[in-house]
Amino acid sequence: MPAVNTSEVKKSDIVGMIEHHREKKGVLIPLLQEVQDRYGYVPKEAVEIIAAELDVYPVDIYGILTFYAQFHLKPRGRHIIKVCMGTACYIMGGKEILDHLKGTLGIEIDQTTEDGNFTLEVVSCLGCCGMGPVVMVDEKFYGRCDLQKMDEVLQEYGK
């Protein structure tokens, strides 16, 4: 789903999410996933509220956020492009696709275009190895990609 990326963090929203998880054991990861679903990333303010409410140190929360690849600490673009770098996609030309996207969009991995439209990410494997190279834009999969097809896909999302 396209990220929302609102920078306004309402304390009541975060507390609401915490209440939803509070009684369960091992809440931090699902809770942080919910925060990220809401904001598109995990804002600093949210970390502070969670730390205070659950009585844990912010550093422990950052420990989790930086350990797992799925969490993001900065706002991301409206569309997230994930280039699969699984083995099959890699040997089928995933690297060329990635280089092409970097060049066309003028950004490196994990960066966002200036207009905020695209964020470029790589992912270890999307599990569509038979369709490689695979690129995922938001929730949509594109299989058997080549450079021309990538240009068409970018246009579809307003490049």
């Binding site: 054991k25 809440v27 990861i29 699902p30 996933q33 989790i64 350990f67 690849a69 969490f71 270890s124």
Partner: peptide, 25 residues
């Protein structure tokens, strides 16, 4: 169901358990 958060090492069983418990894997 518990959803992972993107860490290959969590396929190792003791890391996977740590992750279910809400910790670094």
């Amino acid at each position: 169901i518990m959803q992972g958060a993107g860490a290959f090492v969590c396929g190792e069983e003791t890391a996977l358990i740590a992750s279910i418990e809400g910790k670094r894997g």
